[in-house]
Design a protein around this nucleic acid. Sequence first.
DNA 1: TTGTACGCGTTATCAT
DNA 2: ATGATAACGCGTACAA
Lengths: 331, 331
Amino acid sequence: MSVTIKEVAREAGVSVATVSRVLNGSCNVSEDSAARVNDAIKKLNYSPNYLGRNLRKRETNVILCIMPSSEHSLYSKIVGGMQRYASKIGYDVITAVSDGVSTVEARQMNMLYNRTVDGVVLLGTLFDAQSLNRLAENYDIALCCEGVTGANVLTVAVDDEGAAIDAVKALVKKGHSDIAFIGTKSEAISSTARENGYKMALEECGIPYREELVYKDSYEYACGFDAMNYFNSLEKRPTAIFAVSDLLAIAAIHRAYELGIEVGKDISIMGFDNITMCEMMLPTVSTVEQPCEKMGELVIAKLIENIHSTEKDNKYYTVDHRVILRQSTGD
Amino acid sequence: MSVTIKEVAREAGVSVATVSRVLNGSCNVSEDSAARVNDAIKKLNYSPNYLGRNLRKRETNVILCIMPSSEHSLYSKIVGGMQRYASKIGYDVITAVSDGVSTVEARQMNMLYNRTVDGVVLLGTLFDAQSLNRLAENYDIALCCEGVTGANVLTVAVDDEGAAIDAVKALVKKGHSDIAFIGTKSEAISSTARENGYKMALEECGIPYREELVYKDSYEYACGFDAMNYFNSLEKRPTAIFAVSDLLAIAAIHRAYELGIEVGKDISIMGFDNITMCEMMLPTVSTVEQPCEKMGELVIAKLIENIHSTEKDNKYYTVDHRVILRQSTGD
DNA sequence: TTGTACGCGTTATCAT
DNA sequence: ATGATAACGCGTACAA
């Protein structure tokens, strides 16, 4: 079986307390004892059992990040940012994938209830505002990337409305006025706020809103296909499209080529997120960048502050976005 | 603070032993007691502390998966398969990203040593055979997706050599004989075995091997660009390319278009992995599929068998690959 | 500086 | 069927 602190103590000829002191860097231990303990540790190849340690310390230094999909570049980048920052301050970030199923997400939250982790970051949760508020009373949780209206929970995300405004204005600036929108029917802020931004940008630019230029379904890749089919069937077709996600934009681009429409020339298409694929696609895809690394850092920093504090910070932190113009808008 | 089994026992008017029995589904408990315990659990919103439980049971039912990159679709899919299967049998899979840095990978292995997890799956490890063999003596580990020559460790991967042979033969069957190869200088099996397969396929088909048609650098996306630049500079250019990864193939495709070469017509390009992007690209990308879901399942199943057994299975399990022809080879 | 002893929350053994 | 109690491995207050 696994070697324990007790055996190290016996080997070193000291008490377990002394071994523990060496382990935790206490200064109240003689050089001689410390040396003997370290020798024993090396000789027995000892590694402290964190179950015992964590049980005693009532903390694990582990944060769980629950994400809806294991395959979304946006989430991967954010998690990367979380992990790199967390490791600097002695924390580990582990991940679980809910596949966008609320029951799975709820089950994964058990790791929080049963004290396997100290806190949870939710990337695009399915919990409603009420559930989140109740959860936040007893546990340390945070939302990242996707806020929930009515939830008074620590949140880190871009200013979705402002970002959409900037994106659409960039299209207007390039001479477009027949600008279509691909959104979703979901009530997620990333969808509704970006739709609002789309409308506001049009209004600010004096461009009349035309309902037939709005196509809404879901975040599924295939919906981008359907959207492009629909726009192509219109009498007065759009000359530009703003999609709420890069995946939808890429699907639309793909379908456009199948329909013989040259993207970047016949039509301009802009996505949202700046996933890695944007630079690999032909044509490269214009988009709104979310600062993933920074979002990951910030949410971990604030969450850990909450863990160590009695008064919980439940603010909605907004991080900077950036419009990136590439070939799909003729740049 | 968090409510414990003790308080539940007091509330239900029974001993902690009885509460524990109810919790763990023992049949030796009266209906009456069980009901009172369950009421108390609900009333107090009790959730057992797994640190205590795991410490006592000497197991965590958690598997750690260490991956080199958080953004590779192949890994994401495999992890998805691992998680879905694991959850069926009462296990959780958590992930950590090493970023391909051996020191980071080594540090993450601590979760194994300190008993935070029961076992580890390494996706493309940087440990050498000797280290792996030593590790496997004391802990339950497994390799997935990428084997290590000389390591007698449980491994699940495709038959890289055979898969490469099939891929190249598919190109030959389409009439190609000037077939180039994009590989890497790494000693990873996924690279060396696929290069062997490339050579063997040529030989079997009676096509002479031409060293100038082999370009090797790294798995980095940009290397696909360089490869295409190189092939384009040759006097006798290849009519087909087999790349050891989809990312390299996609980069080559991208560069080909920039050079005015139409992929699928002027040149055929085939990748390896069947990452999600293959179907989104323009043109869609021919490739060799790795059965990710199945690999994830198998490696978890075998690893957990090892965890519960004294005689360790250290076999090299090979799973079926499949050549998929799409537009990039003119299909 | 060092050691003894208790408690973290749970499961399992042993009586009853 | 039930309860008292001893582990599990560790950190630390307290005494020495």
